[in-house]
Design a binder for these strands. Structure first.
Lengths: 206, 206, 206, 206
DNA sequence: AATGAATGAGAATTCATTCAT
DNA sequence: AATGAATGAATTCTCATTCAT
């Protein structure tokens, strides 16, 4: 399972030796702050802002992440990995339907709340690095597992596949973030999708 | 009804007198190019790019739209107005269900193809001008009419309202644009949503 | 002395034929407006502003004055000529002292009120055209006449000459304009200068 | 050892700009250059010019002074403070008359030589920051002290007050700067003013 | 002759990135 | 390793001036 062992953040810089404790701390702090900053302001937020909020010098940010793109990438990878882990943790759930719909709702409700960076979540023609692409793919696969489990349990219609489900996931979470939907509206939006994902009635309209 | 008659693009500058033919042409060209440029690169695309692709000097762009924000706004308003007109044209359709679902699909399939600017479609905390807000609101209302018509015709479930439907519309069209979804995937995504919007079975199991 | 006959405004463009009446009117209006605009905003005020306030198109301004510098120059020349005429009109006054001090005070009080352009009044290293220099020189000479008359009448000390008097005139009128001096302050400032210009005690009578 | 001599900031030609250790030096150099540049060209001189003459990049200027207005302000404050200190140093002079007239003459002769920025020296309707206003006020007060001292010593007429004296000071120093007055002319101009400021004779005319 | 449109050359300001301590 | 300073390349916007009607 540990498909991501080689993406250990502490090694992203390519450093073979263990990093100094303070460096590691700084790296984490920068990533955390960057997630907030870019989440709020999009990729056009400034690196200076990140440095300032992280309480480090601008040069320190660039020491850890050689370019702004690398920083953005690291943020994305971190986020994807986190979500993937959550999805993987649900892979063996006793109630696959609850697991799938729960994860879907969680992504839209909570998690998405932070990340306007999701701009990149699917981006086909994107300029993403292998690392980002890999993390993204792994997340997608983890969601695929949940989907298939739910389908096997008869909780999700059989005639649907991962691409469209993933697209819906991305679409709703991004919009939820961006448009700051009212809680009730968001729930009703999910209801529609979840109903649409439910197994078809015998007399369903084609 | 046509509350937007006074937003005729040709008059957006507030000029009473008819513009010179060449000026009008330029204005249109700039708007068209801007829709593409900002559609592709988001609001962070440069005004220079717009000028260059439109084949005019940078100052000409600023003559027509005094700030970059004004240009973006004009693009948005134009787009909203166009979509609204299409929606309004369907308000009296003989088949309200086809009208509603057709418009939904159209937006996601065609129209959205150009506009990543949809960033602003719902933006609650946005910094939008009254004109933009108005155009946006009118589009929303036009969609609302289609929705109610379809509900009255029994083609859309009764327990759903405009906000969530509109959110879905925005979500899917933006993602469709951004992620360059495969045609089939997009259709299956729409199928899920449309099924979710279908009237609930009277005897829904469990 | 009609030394300025060849600076007839109507001919400044070099046009041999009589101008159309409306052209002449426009020219005057532009000059008048320009005097205000540049008086208020300095030479950095925009030509567009002048055109707008004059109610003509920008191209019309440039038709009359080929460059902004030419417009500024024309304003200056016009102003200098006007002041010179006023000075010349006082050359034969029955009370040379009153004439001199009156003109001095008038320049500082009224006239200066409009012209921040006076930046150029003396400018030695200035980039002024022959026409401007000529007009400036003539004004200076006219003031020189008033000064000498007043000296001959025993109203102004003999050991002073035009350069310093003119410098004081310029200094006070510019400052009066720029600093928007209180009326009383301005008067007391003039009192100091006028007292300083008064004939020295020993040879007071003579 | 003596390698630091090569990094002497005074060597602008070699472009051997020291970097870290002399941020302060850079700041000073920028201010000094700005005083000259704005002194010569007024506030409309470009920041690029300042950067170029200071031998630094344009961004460095903006790092030290976030806006052009801030730079102008810093220049003004610095200048005001310097003059104020000079005035204050004369507050306890044994010869108050010499102190006052000396300072007046000094301002007009030397110091003013650089600063057309004095545009702002009195500016009532100016858009000056509190810092500038404060520095200006303090300078004015310091001059006020010199004036009162001289009046108490019987060297300056009693019926005059700071506002008009200050106005004269500003007027003459600005004109002296701007018009590049000949030395003799400037001295005779001062003579007139100083005579006007002298205590009135018992049998004064008026 | 008059006009509005068009334009390129700046000008101020920002930002990712590099340098020197 | 960390930092603040420095920097040039954009980017938005302005303005004097020319063009076409």
């Amino acid at each position: 399972m540990s498909t991501s062992a080689d993406r250990d953040p502490a090694r992203a810089t390519g450093d073979r030796r263990p990093q100094r404790a303070d460096a590691r701390t700084n790296r984490e702090r920068i990533l955390t702050v960057a997630e907030e900053v870019f989440g709020a302001g999009g990729r056009s937020a400034s690196t200076d802002e990140v440095a300032r909020l992280a309480g480090v010098g601008i040069a320190t940010v660039f020491r850890h992440f050689p370019t702004k793109a690398a920083l953005l990438e690291a943020v994305l990878v971190r986020r994807f990995d986190r979500l993937r882990k959550q999805a993987e943790a649900l892979a063996d759930a006793t109630d696959p339907g609850a697991a799938f719909f729960g994860f879907f709702g969680h992504l839209v409700t909570d998690a998405a709340g932070k990340i306007a960076i999701g701009e990149a979540l699917m981006d086909a023609g994107g300029d993403h690095s292998p690392a980002t692409t890999e993390a993204s793919t792994e997340l997608r696969q983890a969601v695929g597992v949940l989907l298939r489990n739910a389908q096997r349990a008869g909780e999700v219609r059989e005639d649907t596949e991962l691409p469209e489900v993933y697209a819906l996931l991305v679409a709703t979470s991004r919009t939820s973030t961006h448009a700051r939907l009212d809680e009730n509206v968001r729930d009703r939006m999910l209801t529609i999708i979840f109903d649409g994902l439910a197994p078809r009635q015998r007399n369903a309209s084609s």
